[in-house]
């Protein structure tokens, strides 16, 4: 027999809904492809999108000092603005879009946000900022696929129908973490 516990039963008994789609973006080309795919899925499912960017924990500088809180604030504002720019490029689609900036380790933050923001589906790219060298599929995507309680669409190379008009830029200017 398969092991069963209360949490499993709760997940299995939930009705199938598709109202809010979580799209984690790190602004890599692959994550933008995944977002473009999520747009198509959202249109087909009449769902809304939740764009999430995870700010990884602050690391020490070479002089072993933590950045000033003011600089950290600037970084936050910078990423929020990028997220909002991305959201505004979706205006033409009429899909309701929300943005969220979270601090933490990417996989944990994504899994956590999927739960707390009650998302029904996660659409994400398989290799992000850390590149393809990180095994064939990214470690973040793999962790999310394994642990998420909602369905996950992992987009390795998106497949669009003929005559598809892209709304998301293919690449965005790289940003250096300060």
């Amino acid at each position: 027999m398969e092991p069963a516990d209360a949490e499993d039963d709760g997940v299995l008994a939930r009705p199938v809904t598709l109202e809010r789609i979580l799209v984690p973006v790190d602004f890599s080309a692959c994550s933008l492809d995944a977002l473009e795919y999520a747009v198509v899925v959202a249109q087909q499912a009449k769902a809304s999108l939740m764009l999430l960017h995870v700010l990884e924990p602050v690391s020490y500088g070479l002089d072993f000092t933590l950045g000033h809180s003011r600089t950290r604030e600037l970084v936050r504002e910078n990423w929020t603005k990028r997220l909002e720019d991305l959201a505004s490029s979706l205006k033409v689609t009429d899909i309701p879009v929300e943005v969220q900036l979270q601090g933490g380790f990417p996989a944990d933050s994504i899994l956590d946000s999927a739960q707390t923001l009650s998302c029904d589906l996660i659409v994400m790219g398989t290799h992000g900022r850390r590149g393809i060298s990180h095994a064939i599929s990214g470690s973040v995507a793999e962790a999310v696929l394994r642990k998420a309680l909602c369905p996950v669409i992992a987009v390795r190379s998106p497949k669009f129908g003929p005559g598809h008009r892209r709304v998301i830029p293919i690449e965005m200017s790289p940003v250096t973490h300060t």
Partner: peptide
């Protein structure tokens, strides 16, 4: 045909239906 696969079946059918 495990119960988790059955859950995936629910999703596959729901998606196939609506799309």
């Amino acid at each position: 045909f495990s119960r988790w696969a059955r859950r995936a079946e629910d999703y596959a059918c729901a998606l196939a239906c609506s799309w």
